[in-house]
Design a binder for these strands. Structure first.
Length: 257
DNA sequence: ACTCACTGAACTCGTTTGCA
DNA sequence: TGCAAACGAGTTCAGTGAGT
């Protein structure tokens, strides 16, 4: 999908890209082979040629910062398939909603290579350097929650291409939270019924020895942490199927245009 | 409960097109 | 070549909604 995208080239918008596609110009390669076959204004021709050549080079180098800058948030999904091997899926749990008076308690980072959990007071400080191994991040509502939280609390920069599935699914007409949309798409989870507020209770049960009542069961200590990690892990691992479905659906909306 | 990035509508401004 | 109309990209801003 990325290699048929022209909108990231400065001066080229949705209309010009649609116009190129309707003329049969459906990839960078096709444009470079026979640029004269396609009717575009002289200004667009100049920009397209330079833009397509540069895009090809940057993709060969997997220059995620280049594509992050030019694709922006609404088109980041188009780079998903090309950057899948460089992608990680991220979800965090915290003690509240605001970074001002809350902490990050656990984080899960999932990729094709490994699934790693980070826990406050244990290995949370490893997250920042581990993230440098990736060029693409997938989250659910991460643009407004996970990433700003990590920036504020752990000073983590995010030069990655970011696919926020909530925003992408919103454009497809899906409303509601992660668990609700998972159900709609037939994605199952072991920790069904556990929510974000429970994650706070589980952390307190682990850290301060209080008792948390989760799905009618009383848990505390290591058992509470173990359930919190499992919940965090499922939130993250399920993003893979959700991302695959979302990107396919977005591709279909373009085909039916 | 609190936060703020994103969306979409409305607008501006530069470019292209069509005609004489 | 010059002009006016049409088009499209970019910018601004208010409202929305889901995370723990």
């Amino acid at each position: 999908m990325l290699e048929k995208t022209f909108q990231h080239i400065p001066g080229v918008g949705e209309k010009t890209e649609e116009d190129l596609w309707s003329q049969g110009c459906d990839s960078w390669q096709r444009y470079l082979e026979n640029p004269g076959d396609f009717i575009v204004s002289p200004l667009h021709r100049k920009r397209l040629h330079a833009g397509v050549l540069e895009s090809k080079c940057r993709l060969e180098e997997f220059d995620h910062e280049y594509f992050r800058r030019l694709l922006g948030t609404s088109l980041s999904w188009r780079a998903y398939n090309q950057f899948k091997d460089h992608a990680c899926y991220l979800d965090i749990e915290t003690t509240g909603l605001s970074p001002r008076d809350s902490h990050v308690t656990t984080v899960c980072l999932h990729s094709s290579r490994e699934t790693k959990n980070y826990v406050l007071g244990e290995n949370l400080n490893e997250l920042k350097s581990d993230l440098q191994d990736y060029g693409y991040i997938v989250t659910f509502n991460g643009a407004r929650f996970d990433l700003p939280f990590l920036r504020a609390k752990l000073a983590i920069p995010f030069p990655h291409i970011h696919l926020d599935l909530m925003q992408a699914l919103h454009r497809l007409g899906y409303r509601g939270g992660l668990k609700y949309i998972e159900k709609q798409m037939g994605i199952r989870r072991e920790t069904d019924g556990v929510g974000g507020l429970d994650a706070i209770h589980l952390w307190n049960a682990y850290r301060y020895g209080t008792t948390a009542e989760i799905l009618g069961e009383k848990v505390r200590g290591k058992e509470a942490l173990s359930l919190l990690i499992q919940y965090n892990r499922e939130d993250t691992v399920n993003l893979v199927e959700l991302a695959e479905n979302t990107v396919k659906l977005l591709e279909n909306t373009l085909k039916t245009k």
